[in-house]
Nucleic acid binder design. Structure first.
Lengths: 132, 132
DNA sequence: TGCTTAATGCAATTTTGTTGCAAATATAGA
DNA sequence: TCTATATTTGCAACAAAATTGCATTAAGCA
């Protein structure tokens, strides 16, 4: 895994995600980093953080992609590579709009043979404890 | 549930979805119906089909929303309303790009109390049987 | 410290989805 | 079958989200 460089934008965005209790969209991240870098750069930094395995992404029911720091994401060996799994559930609150990683809610699924899983996205929408 | 009208565009798009083995995006649907109606109309027809409970939608890992005919989606009574549930898994093939409904793969999840589920989207990406 | 290559900013473009309004048309009722 | 009316459609314009190319900047290794 070739390493990517440590830049101001990267550091800033990574900290933002690590300190957030919620998953953030590119738009939100850019809003919170207005002066640190260009909008295009946030896209590129996020791609870098993704492929470095530092963050993972999740897609809401509205199609909005959000990013969250990897905390307890399980790591599995597969050959020589680390396989990063983010199969915990993400909760989309329809009231406050927040997306939360439920790190310890991991659905069990049994796919028919011959399907090879590489990545998963489990999203559940409804009302979160704060809003109910 | 007020009924929506039966128009050429609606009939065409509904048949397209019912005859497809895969979920289709608005872009794909429009591509397959080039001359039947305007681009905006496909969006509106899809919304109508959704709220009529004839199709359901699923969001891929790339954020692309796709639509699929309801086949074995379970119906549950809740008060006087039918509750339409689409909690089966959708498989995203990373090779051919197709999204397939795995109607009989329904994950069991146990959310912490106080989270109220209203809708779910389970997507798994990898390689489908055709491509492996 | 200098060099190489990755990262950035900027401007332009593409893609995706939405809105308002006038014209067309599906359906219920006469 | 014809008519009234409310839904649906097309069009044009707009808004939002994401991508690309290229010249410039800067991170990090030797």
């Amino acid at each position: 895994m070739k390493k990517s460089r440590n830049t101001a934008a990267r550091t800033h965005i990574q900290e933002l995600l690590q300190q957030s209790d919620f998953a953030l969209s590119q738009t939100e991240i850019y809003g919170l980093s207005e002066e640190i870098c260009d909008r295009v750069t946030t896209y590129r930094v996020l791609d870098r953080l993704l492929s470095d395995g530092v963050v993972h992404k999740t897609v809401g029911l509205d199609g909005v992609v959000k990013y969250a720091a990897c905390r307890t994401c399980s790591h599995e060996e597969e050959g020589h590579n680390h396989l990063h799994r983010h199969d915990h559930v993400h909760f989309n609150c329809e009231n406050c709009g927040q997306v939360t990683c439920l790190e310890n809610v991991v659905p069990e699924i049994k796919l028919p043979r011959k399907y090879k899983i590489r990545e998963a996205n489990f999203t559940v929408a409804g009302v979160c404890p704060e809003c109910s």
